[in-house]
């Protein structure tokens, strides 16, 4: 099946890209790595008339970190580069790990973290961890620049808060709180490197008495967007993390989901796994947070 026809542009600046998108109107599409976009075009899911490639825009591939600003991942930073970046591995091991577990070598050498988010698949493997860490997206469009929390960014399968002509230029992640850790666990039929049927990401911070000081839980692939398990968080915040409190929270987490049957798993299974993975993810994060002394 050949790929249907479209025009292609490779702007050098973000402004140029925004202008090109504006000119293209609703038939225009942004492309970072193209690993989602080209597959969708090939399978006739979408039919863009113009593609605006971002890879020639200088600086967008950058991954930068500072203690006060936190982490910035540019729109064309490759999954492979995020996974290998030393500040990411050091300060955001969960972000590096999620990027490293996405797809396979080839796709990680083409695809981007930002593309994974903009694609807005409910099962996007990079979303839960970044959501749990309170990431924000930076956006440039015909009306100028703005930023928003990643939590507000997702609107439905394949749908985001982007207005026509807007481009995400980066995702930013604040410095995680002290004595915190993230964990992301996902399930699929094959051992590894596969689109997930269920995924749970958590960020857990402990107080000096090892109680849960802060907790953010997001469940992927179990609703139209990765969902926050606020009820579960409330069960644990301020509490000790025991087998029974964590299990109680995990049962709440599953309630936040609206799973469906599809080719990867049934709704019942997803619902159940949301609980199992939430328990494991919290316990995993707890273990690692406990290693960090005040």
């Amino acid at each position: 099946m050949p790929i249907p026809r479209f025009d292609y542009f490779a702007p050098r600046t973000v402004d140029e890209a925004v202008n090109l998108l504006a000119q293209a109107g609703p038939d225009g599409r942004v492309m970072a790595g193209g690993t989602d976009l080209l597959v969708k075009i090939r399978f006739r899911v979408i039919h863009p008339a113009a593609i605006v490639g971002l890879k020639k825009i200088e600086g967008l591939e950058r991954i930068s970190f500072s203690r006060n600003k936190g982490l910035t991942i540019g729109a064309t930073a490759l999954l492979a580069d995020v996974a290998a970046s030393s500040p990411v591995r050091r300060y955001y091991p969960g972000v590096a790990q999620a990027a490293d577990q996405t797809a396979n070598v080839q796709v990680r050498n083409m695809g981007t973290v930002v593309g994974n988010l903009c694609n807005a698949s409910p099962s996007a493997d990079n979303a839960p961890t970044l959501l749990a860490l309170g990431a924000r997206v930076r956006i440039t469009g015909p009306g100028g620049q703005r930023s928003m929390s990643l939590e507000d960014f997702f609107r439905g399968p394949g749908m985001t808060a982007l207005e026509p002509g807007e481009i995400v230029t980066a995702v930013t992640v604040p410095l995680p709180p002290p004595r915190s850790a993230t964990a992301y666990l996902s399930l699929s039929a094959r051992a590894k490197l596969d689109c997930s049927a269920v995924g749970v990401g958590v960020m857990l911070a402990l107080d000096d008495r090892d109680r849960c000081k802060d907790l953010r839980i997001f469940v992927g692939a179990c609703a139209p967007i990765p969902v926050r398990a606020g009820g579960a968080e409330q069960v644990l915040i301020g509490e000790k993390l025991t087998d029974s409190t964590v299990e109680q929270a995990a049962l709440e987490a599953a309630k936040a989901t609206q799973p469906i049957d599809d080719v990867r798993a049934s709704a019942d299974y997803r619902y159940k796994m949301a609980t199992v993975l939430t328990i494991r993810a919290i316990m995993d994060a707890r273990k690692r947070a406990l290693r960090k002394k005040n």
Binding site: A189, R190, A191, K192, L193, D194, C195, V263, R264
Partner: peptide
Amino acid sequence: FVMDGGKTLNTTFLDYKMPHAPD
């Protein structure tokens, strides 16, 4: 094969899951 009546739903190697090297 995941079928809906006579229709095969998983028509890519992403969803037709034959074992990879790590499996």
